[in-house]
Structures are given as C-alpha cells and as structure tokens.
Design a protein around this nucleic acid. Structure first.
Length: 488
RNA sequence: GCUCGUAUGGUGUAGCCCGGUCCAUCAUCUCGCCCUUUCGAGGCGAUUACGCGGGUUCGAAUCCCGCUACGAGCACCA
C-alpha cells in the first residue's frame, strides 16, 4: 500500500513526518518572478504540504538591496504564481519586514558569546580562513562588540568596514564553515530597499544563512527541501543553532537541473534584458519563466507531474523538455478545440468531375467532444489551401492525398485537385486544409530565437486566450496579435 | 588546495537500507506496425542501462575496499 503510493507520486516519505505537523517553506529572492527552476521548489514543497496536511510558508528572502535588489512587482507575481502552480494558498512572510527581529537575535548572540564584529577586510579574513588562524576581533569583549554593533547601525562604520561573524571554529576541516558572516552593512541611502515602506530604514542586514536560520526556527519549519548547493549552508546554520540550542529541521536536497532548450538565464540577466527592450516582458515566450510557460499554454498540472516524476534525488540531471510537453499534452489535449492554420498556403481548385460534393462541411472541433461547436467549411467556391510542404509530400506519391474530412484527391500541376472519392479509398496521407481564412502571425521559438510566420488561419470565434490545437502542427494559444506555439 | 555530494539505457526514474522473486521498473525519446473524424493523439511492439577494478558470498545493481568521472561550497549573493 505504502509502496504504490510512493510510486504513484514519485516522492518518498519525508523523514519523521507527522500528519498535520509538518511545516514547509519555499523561499525565493523576489528579484524577479518565478522561473522554471523555481517551480521545482514550489511543486515539491507544496505536494508534501498537501500530503501531510501541513503548513506551507512562502518566504521572500529580500535582504540584498545592492546586488540582487528586489523587484517590487515580483512579490505579488510570485505569490500568484505559487497559488497557480500548487493550488494552495501559502502563508507569506517577507524578510525585509522582520529586520528588527533579526537584529534582536544578533544582539542575543553577542551575549551568548556566539559572535563578534569583525573589522577585517574580506581579503584579510580570507587569509585567516585559509590559514586556520583566528582574527584579532574574535576576542572582542561583549562591550566592544556592542559598541561596534552600534556603529554599524548608526553609520559610523561603512559597508565593508565591519561584519558580524558567527563563532564556529577556525580549525574546522571544511573551510566554508569557519566563522561565517551573519550580518553586513548596506548603504541603503544609495541603495534603498525597493519596498517604499522599508527604503533606507536599516543599514545592517542579515545574510541568507543567518536570516533563513532564524526564520526557520521562528516559524517552526520541520523540513527544508532545497538545492544541494546549499549543503554547506545547512552545516553553517546547524552551528548557529547550537549557539541558540535550537533543533535544526530535517533537510533534504535536490541536484541541479539543466534543460538544454532553456540555455542559461539568470534572473538578474533577464531583468536587464527586459528593461533594455531585448525581451518584451517576463512572459516573453523565449524566456524560461513560469509566466512565459503559462502564456504558451503549459498547465500547472503538467509542471507538477513533471517534477514529481523527476523525483527528489541529489543527482545533477539534464531534463528533456519533451517530457514536460508530453505531460502537458495529456492534460490539455482533451480540452483543446481543433482548428487549422496553413503555413505557406498553396491554392488549388476542386475538380469534382463525376463525384458530387456538398457545398458546406460541418467538421468536429474535437474527435471526442460532440458538444464542441462544429466548424463550418464553405466549399461552394471550390478553393482549398494546403501547406506547401504537404504538396511536396503529395507529389512524391503521384499527387495523391486525402483532404481531411472531405475527400481523396489527386493534385495536378495546373492547380486542380481532382476529387477521386469522398470515402477514403486510396489510403493516402491525410492532410489539413482550409477553404478560406485570414492571415495571422504564428509565433514560435527555435533555438532560443523568436520565429514569426504569417499563416492562413481558420476563421473562428474562439476568444483570445483560448488554447487550441492547430491540426498537425501543435498546441498554440490565440492572442490578440497572433498565435503562440506551445509545443507539438 | 580543502570540504561536501552523486554515479542504473539517448533522457529521467524504481529497486539499493532488510543480498536471490532483477535475464532490472515506469515514463519520455527514437524506430516499426495498427487504428483513425487531424496529430507530434490513441493501441501494440522493438532497440538501448546497473561507471571501473578488486573483495565477501552458493549467489551482488544491492554489502566492503580502492579508483575514476562529474557536480557543488569555501562571497560583506540568494
């Protein structure tokens, strides 16, 4: 019983998980909306929250105002995307609202002799770290630390002049853990926090390892699931927890995921390119953002299946986008009305000779949905448009081809489509076609480049935003200014 | 350099803790065939894998040792 459940969801049980007693969190930096990579964190954490009926916290780790300044719109975008992706509403915590709390713990740590204000330059301390030597500030008495702490906060000390370090042990085998930095000074006059209510209110900001560790404790987080690049973070934080005598959450890691088609994008890089106009927005279909995937028609359910099937392992993996598309097809195919678009249309005239044909056709909009409004093809003008590629294919078979839902025909070089029979008799390949239509632009992405193609699109009443299946081409979303291909 | 981690087919994944039922699961991709009111849909089928070398054992993907490859951390980023 237990085994089938694990197999089905792709996720194994969380260690020491208690029904109703699990607290998970997902903690992105709101310097941009969610990317494809983030969706793994959303899906895995939220699925566990559902499975154990636990609490789900969405925490914005927005404590860097200089290098990765938060994007004000990103907070609400991420929250909305989280809900869309997971189907559950998380509790929201914003780190920049809670700086005062982190300050209190920082001061408490001085009192516990668990930290000190270090006035070494980054380079000087690096020498100590490499040589396993203690820096002179390590022995600051409490009063001196408190005095310097005051100077960090009141502006006497500038960014780079001092940093608060957690006392671990300079002899630790792992260099990453030796007296790691917990809080630093940021010039918030020059680089105010983008949230207006925060702005320049604080000068001393916690680093990830301190902020995250304190917050996880305050929220009672029971399980942390994160990338294995944060393994040393866990070890650092455990050392901090020992000073406070707290119990560290269970921690599980996943490895790196590479999707070849997505190349390498960084949130800050995308932000720059959007601001410079290279991309039209976060939902530009070339971008690996959740916004772009959604716009093209990738469903939340497909994203969930995808990550769940990949499961939770520490292996670095190269995931295939085709797998995501396959999941998506299973979700959307049943809902997508069929419609036709002709690329490079070639016109033919129906030559009915002895075979009588109707003047209008009522064609199903979905093979399994009779209730979908029928498509009406008026062929009284006897014109049909087919794709140039299909013409070439047909010519290799003596021009024989079957026009879907109409007839077997033989295409002639003079532009005639000679009707052979209404019933399929020649066993020819079936191609899609249109009697008429209107021009629209088909947008797709090829090798990261945007491709725009004018196509003849079936006249239809589908409202903008509808996800359609373009017969024999693929799934695409209809928008005001064209069609946007999702995948085949 | 130090520290940590991972190694099952083209790509992912199950199995490994508690050795045999594993001539290794499932999905995806590729290729065939079938069906068909489109298809890259559906149905059926096929090819392809336990990193290397030792050891323990009647028996190892599973246990032990060594090696190799790859990845990550060693930021006053997250």
């Amino acid at each position: 019983m237990k085994q089938t459940k694990e197999r089905k969801s792709g996720l194994s049980e969380l260690p020491d998980a208690v029904q109703g007693g699990v607290v998970l969190r997902f903690a992105p930096n709101p310097n941009g909306p969610l990317s494809f990579g983030h969706s793994r964190g959303v899906v895995i954490n939220s699925e566990y929250a559902k499975r154990y009926d636990g609490r789900m916290i969405l925490r914005f780790d927005d404590t860097d105002t200089v290098r990765k300044p938060p994007l004000p719109q990103a907070y609400s975008m991420i929250e909305e995307e989280f809900i869309w992706l997971s189907g559950i509403t998380p509790e929201v915590i914003i780190a920049s609202d809670r700086i005062e709390i982190y300050h209190q713990f920082a001061v408490e740590l001085f009192h516990k002799d668990g930290s000190y204000v270090c006035e070494c330059s980054a380079e000087e301390f690096k020498q100590h770290r490499v040589n396993k030597t203690e820096c002179p500030h390590r022995e600051n008495p409490l009063e001196r630390n408190l005095e310097l702490w005051g100077q960090m906060n009141d502006g006497t000390l500038a960014p780079g002049d001092a940093v608060v370090r957690v006392k671990t042990d300079m002899q630790l085998a792992n260099p990453a853990l030796r007296d790691w930095p917990a809080l630093r000074i940021q010039d918030t006059n020059k680089n105010p926090h983008p949230r207006s209510e925060i702005g320049s209110r604080w000068r001393v900001w916690p680093l990830l390892d301190f902020q995250s560790a304190v917050e996880d404790h305050l929220q009672g987080v029971t399980h942390i699931i994160r990338g294995k690049d944060l393994m040393d973070s866990t070890r650092k934080q455990i050392l901090l927890y020992e000073h406070f005598d707290w119990k560290y959450p269970e921690t599980i890691y996943w490895g790196r995921v590479k999707v070849h088609e997505f190349g390498s994008f960084s949130t800050s890089g995308m932000r720059q390119d959007i601001e410079s106009g290279e991309y039209e927005g976060w939902d530009d279909i070339r971008l690996p953002t959740i916004a772009a995937l959604r716009r093209k028609g990738i469903s939340a359910e497909a994203l969930r299946s995808f990550w769940l099937e990949l499961s939770l392992t520490q292996k670095d993996i190269k995931a295939a986008l085709s797998t995501l598309h396959s999941h998506n097809t299973k979700v959307i195919d049943l809902k997508c009305p069929r419609t036709s678009a002709i690329r490079k249309p070639v016109e033919f005239t129906l030559d009915r000779k002895s075979v009588a044909i109707p003047t209008t056709l009522n064609i199903a909009a979905h093979p399994e949905h009779d209730d979908f409004e029928k498509r009406v093809f008026d062929i009284s003008e006897l014109t049909v448009f087919i794709e140039e590629a299909d013409l070439q294919m047909a010519m290799q078979k003596d021009g024989l081809v079957r026009l879907k839902d109409l007839a077997d025909v033989r295409l002639h070089g003079d532009g005639r489509a000679e009707i052979l029979s209404l019933e399929p008799e020649t066993g020819s390949s079936i191609i899609h076609w249109l009697p008429t239509g209107h021009e629209t632009i088909l947008h797709s992405v090829e090798n990261g480049e945007l491709k725009k193609e004018v196509v003849l699109f079936e006249n239809n009443n589908h409202p903008n935003g509808t996800l359609l299946q373009l017969e024999r081409i693929g799934y695409a979303r209809k928008e005001e200014n064209g069609l946007f291909i999702c995948h085949g």
